[in-house]
Amino acid sequence: MTDPHSHSHGHVPVHSHGPASPHPAQAAPWSILRMALLSRLGAALLVSLGLWAIVLIAMR
């Protein structure tokens, strides 16, 4: 008779790098560094306006 609790599920942690090395880089879906200059300025303006809106609403 076999013990029902003595079975393996095959859960083996897999890592392809050593414990001292960092994780390998992953491809980013988008990067602000790859955006055109005008797109970066527009994004910065939108973020700035959003933050100012939060500040002004909080001061009410």
Rank of each mutant, 00 (worst) to 15 (best):
M1P: 06
M1T: 12
M1W: 12
T2H: 15
T2Y: 13
D3W: 05
P4W: 02
P4A: 02
P4F: 01
P4V: 00
H5N: 12
S6C: 14
S6W: 15
S6M: 15
H7E: 12
H7G: 10
H7W: 15
H7P: 01
H9K: 02
H9M: 09
H9C: 12
H9T: 09
H9R: 03
H9Q: 11
G10L: 00
G10C: 02
G10Y: 01
H11T: 10
V12K: 12
P13Y: 03
V14A: 10
V14R: 11
V14C: 12
H15Y: 14
S16D: 10
S16Y: 11
H17T: 01
H17M: 05
H17Y: 11
P19F: 01
A20H: 15
S21C: 07
S21K: 10
P22S: 01
H23S: 12
H23D: 15
H23Y: 14
P24E: 08
Q26C: 12
A27D: 02
P29N: 06
P29W: 02
W30M: 02
W30Y: 04
S31V: 07
S31Q: 08
S31M: 09
I32Y: 14
L33K: 11
R34C: 11
R34Q: 13
M35Y: 15
A36Q: 12
A36S: 15
A36E: 10
A36G: 14
L37C: 14
L37F: 08
L37P: 04
L38K: 09
L38C: 09
L38D: 10
S39E: 15
S39N: 13
R40Q: 05
R40K: 06
L41V: 04
L41S: 11
L41T: 08
G42F: 03
G42Y: 02
A43K: 10
A43T: 09
A44F: 12
A44N: 07
A44P: 00
A44E: 11
L45Y: 04
L45N: 10
L45E: 09
L45T: 07
L46H: 07
L46Y: 06
L46P: 00
V47T: 06
V47D: 04
S48L: 07
L49E: 03
G50L: 00
G50N: 01
L51F: 09
W52G: 01
W52A: 02
W52E: 05
A53P: 01
A53E: 01
V55T: 04
L56N: 09
L56V: 04
I57L: 08
A58M: 07
A58E: 07
A58W: 07
M59T: 03
R60V: 06
R60L: 11
